[in-house]
Design a protein around this nucleic acid. Structure first.
Length: 462
RNA sequence: GGCGGAGUAGCCAAGUGGUAAGGCAUCGGUUUGCAAAACCGCUAUUCGUGGGUUCGAUUCCCACCUCCGCCUCCA
């Protein structure tokens, strides 16, 4: 597949470095609360990315970390009066549940920062040894940006801009006084009273790792010095990924990531998503409003990953209808294919354009459009042809990770509702329209919709 | 201020130097006692504004307007 690369700003064909397995790393969540749909836009898009590679026949090695030690996890675990490990385990479980609900494949490796402290200390040590890093008076370790001339390549910021970016606010920040240069970033943070029991022994005294170092150390552990692709939300380009490149290449050599994949942010109701604006949603929030995770997934892939997506509650309703339409189309195709045709041959048939869109810079909205078009094109197919089309459809659906809703099974109808509906049917049969319509309204007030047909009626929760 | 992205029908959203995918909604039709549901169909002479290049631009160039993101720990 072809994908845009943040570093070179080109769309390039992806080929695994080792010729067989596409190895990639995604920055995972900081587990200090429920992830929101903005976080999940990145994770879902990364999931579609992986599924597309795999559907195309490529083997993958997907590594995604859990950030379980940083300022926020420490701060909030203490506020909750809970040990850090218990606090983060709780939110990690919640995150896993949300991922599963959204049908995101679990990564092959899911390392946690706390479990890789020795690797991080080792890495900081190498950087100090090679004089890419220095130890401050308080026992913190900082990376010296001036020792890595290529710093800023990914974000396209040059040194001058980095310096100009240092605001007065940053200069006033007491935390920063230990640095030689304000642009230098911390690899290891000396223990401070507010860290409580969350510290580790290091050659520089007690302390804890800096966030940027965590990812780099875990990447070295599981993917080595050269790997195929690195991904994360666009906000991570600077400084997080810039810092990862600097410290990893300075410590271990190699090129680090061969390709950079950055989904852009979600906006909600036309505005930046923020707690203070009241437009920050979690999967649970949306479930309470009656929207399923699959509807959320549909909305998250309904815009191109390099373009901001405007998430609205209306778009979720639209997604529900669209999913329902897809499901009907797929069921129709299955019926016309009949029982005997379990084709598993490769190929996409009428869904070829949908598949191609996915491979062309992960054009998920183009893919969805192609699916609807393919469905219309295959509306007249029967038997083996329908079966072949259905196989293509299923492969595309698997690639985007969409699970279509089942045909609504007749929900358990309470006896009194059933009795009322039967009486209405009798009145209707007797052509007593006034009585029949009154009972229909009555059922609607009770939350049940009646669907009439010549053969009888069905009840559905409204 | 620096870097970057975007403005396409009521809403969401693809796409292209050669005349606008798809979804939702609306509307119309079939059906229905009337509805609902279901099914079928229609709906942008036009792609923020103004110039320019071109046989031809929404697509390239310039200017302007508007919105959004990043600029030290937020996906």
């Amino acid at each position: 597949m072809r994908l845009y690369d943040t570093l070179t700003r080109e769309i390039r064909e992806l080929k695994p470095i080792d010729g067989s397995t596409f190895r990639f790393y995604c920055c995972g969540p900081t587990v200090y609360g429920p992830a929101h749909i903005g976080n999940f836009r990145s994770f879902v898009l990364q999931d579609v990315f992986r599924r597309t590679l795999e559907t195309g026949g490529m083997r993958t090695l997907h590594v995604r970390n859990i950030t379980d030690v940083d300022d926020k996890t420490i701060r909030d675990s203490q506020a909750a009066n809970e040990p850090l490990s218990e606090f983060t385990a709780r939110w990690t479980d919640r995150y896993h549940a949300d991922c599963e609900a959204l049908n995101c494949l679990p990564p092959h490796v899911e390392p946690s920062a706390v479990e890789h402290i020795p690797q991080q200390i080792e890495m900081a040590g190498v950087l100090v040894e090679k004089e890419h890093a220095y130890v401050s008076d308080d026992g913190s370790v900082y990376f010296r940006i001036s020792s890595f001339p290529e710093y800023g390549q990914l974000s396209h910021l040059d040194t001058r801009e980095l310096s100009l970016g240092k605001t007065q606010e940053a200069r006033a920040n007491a935390d920063e006084y230990e640095k030689d240069d304000l642009a230098d970033f911390v690899l290891w943070k000396a223990r401070r009273p507010e860290d409580g029991e969350n510290y580790w022994q290091s050659p520089w005294g007690e302390g804890r790792p800096g966030w940027h170092l965590e990812c780099s150390a875990m990447i070295k552990e599981y993917l080595g010095t050269d790997f195929d692709l690195h991904s994360g939300g666009e906000d991570l380009i600077f400084p997080h990924h810039e810092n990862e490149i600097a410290q990893s290449r300075c410590a271990w050599g190699g090129q680090f990531a061969g390709h950079w994949f950055h989904p852009t942010h979600l906006i909600v109701d036309g505005r930046k998503m923020a707690k203070s604006l009241g437009n920050l949603y979690t999967i649970d929030d949306l479930a309470e409003k009656g929207f399923s995770p699959m509807e959320v997934r549909y909305v998250l892939i309904s815009g191109h990953y390099r373009k901001q997506l405007n998430f609205t509650l209306d778009s979720l309703t639209a997604a529900r209808e669209a999913l329902s339409k897809l499901a009907k189309g797929a069921r129709g195709l299955a019926e016309r294919a009949g029982e005997g045709h379990l084709l598993t041959e490769a190929g996409f048939g009428p869904f070829e354009s949908a598949w191609e869109a996915l491979n062309d810079d992960l054009n998920t909205p183009g893919c969805l459009g192609g699916i609807f078009t393919g469905l219309r094109e295959s509306a007249k197919l029967e038997g083996a042809e329908a079966a072949a089309a259905l196989a293509g459809l299923n492969r595309v659906l698997k690639a985007i990770g969409l699970i279509l809703p089942e045909e609504p099974t007749s929900a358990a109808v309470p006896d009194d509702i059933r009795a009322l509906a039967d009486k209405r049917w009798e009145a209707r049969a007797a052509k007593d329209w006034a009585k029949s319509d009154a009972m229909r309204d009555q059922l609607a007030d009770l939350g049940w919709a009646v669907k009439d047909s010549p053969q009888g009626y069905e009840l559905e929760p409204a």
